[in-house]
């Protein structure tokens, strides 16, 4: 049988609004991190072999 998916109508509830609030919160955190220069810090750490991190040295 070919699977058909049904999308019933639904009303807005606080249950549906909470994930949206979380998304906004974490988007703000990402922008804050970018603004603070964390992207270059992440890059700086990731392009070097961390011998300590992998159990060598």
């Amino acid at each position: 049988m070919k699977a058909e998916y049904i999308l019933p109508d639904s009303t807005i509830s606080p249950k549906r609004a909470f994930p949206l609030l979380l998304i906004i919160l974490f988007l703000v955190l990402i922008l804050l991190g970018i603004n603070l220069g964390e992207v270059s810090t992440v890059m700086e750490k990731a392009i070097k072999i961390c011998l300590d991190c992998i159990g060598i040295g």
Partner: peptide
């Protein structure tokens, strides 16, 4: 050391990325 150097990096970019994926 970052705070002493005036860089307030506390992982907002990484926590934000993981939180965004998790929220979705």
């Amino acid at each position: 050391p970052a705070v002493k150097a005036g860089h307030y990096h506390f992982g907002a970019y990484i926590i934000g990325t993981l939180g965004l994926i998790g929220s979705l």
